[in-house]
C-alpha cells in the first residue's frame, strides 16, 4: 500500500529528475555575427584577448547588461550579447533543407493566399490587392521587385574593401 517511504521515494526521484537541468551548468551560446572580439572587460575599448567567428560555441558564465562573460576554449573574456544567439547559426538554404517546410513556400501559402499567390505569379492585376480592415492596400508587384533584387557578393566586397571598412 501507499506508505510514507514510497511517498518519499517518488518525491526524491522527481526532484532529482527535475533538478538535473538546473545543475546542468552554464549556457551555451553561438557567435551569430561574422566575427566577434573577446575582450578583457565589458566595454568596446577593452584589450582584445581573442577573436571568434560565426558559429563558434561559447559558454556564458555571467551577463551584465549588453555584455556576457564567456569561456571560449581555454580563454575567458567579455563579448556583447547582441553578437550571440541561442541557436547555432544556420543559413537559409540549410534551414530549408533540414526541415520539411520551405520558407518562401510557407510565406506564400498563407491567407490571404489568393493575392499572395497571384503576386508570386507576377500577374498585372496584383497591384494594390489585399486591402484589409485596416484600409492599407498591399502592393505585391512592388514587393516582388524588391525581393528580386540581389546584391552580388563580389560587389559588396568591393564596396567594403575600397573604403577600407573592416572585413
Amino acid at each position: 500500500m501507499y506508505s510514507r517511504a514510497s511517498e518519499m521515494f517518488w518525491f526524491i526521484l522527481s526532484l532529482f529528475l527535475f533538478a538535473t537541468p538546473a545543475f546542468a551548468g552554464d549556457e551555451t551560446r553561438y557567435v551569430q555575427s561574422v566575427k566577434a572580439d573577446l575582450l578583457r572587460e565589458p566595454n568596446a575599448q577593452a584589450v582584445k584577448v581573442g577573436t571568434m567567428k560565426r558559429g563558434d560555441a561559447v559558454t556564458v558564465v555571467e551577463t551584465t547588461g549588453m555584455w556576457s562573460k564567456v569561456r571560449f576554449g581555454k580563454a575567458n573574456g567579455w563579448v556583447s550579447r547582441i553578437f550571440l544567439s541561442a541557436n547555432k547559426p544556420v543559413g537559409q538554404a540549410d534551414l530549408q533543407k533540414e526541415v520539411p517546410t520551405s520558407l518562401e513556400k510557407a510565406s506564400r501559402r498563407r491567407p490571404p493566399s489568393y493575392s499572395v499567390n497571384a503576386a508570386a505569379r507576377g500577374l498585372a492585376e496584383d497591384k494594390n490587392t489585399g486591402a484589409g480592415a485596416d484600409g492599407y492596400k498591399a502592393d505585391y508587384s512592388a514587393l516582388k521587385k524588391v525581393e528580386e533584387r540581389k546584391v552580388k557578393p563580389d560587389e559588396l566586397e568591393k564596396f567594403r574593401d575600397t573604403a577600407k571598412l573592416p572585413k
Partner: peptide, 20 residues
Amino acid sequence: AKEVNDEVAIGRQMAAKLLG
C-alpha cells in the same frame, strides 16, 4: 525554421502593405 517561416509570412505581407 517555424519561427522564421512565421516572421517572414507576417513581415512580407506588412512590407507589401507599406509599399501599397
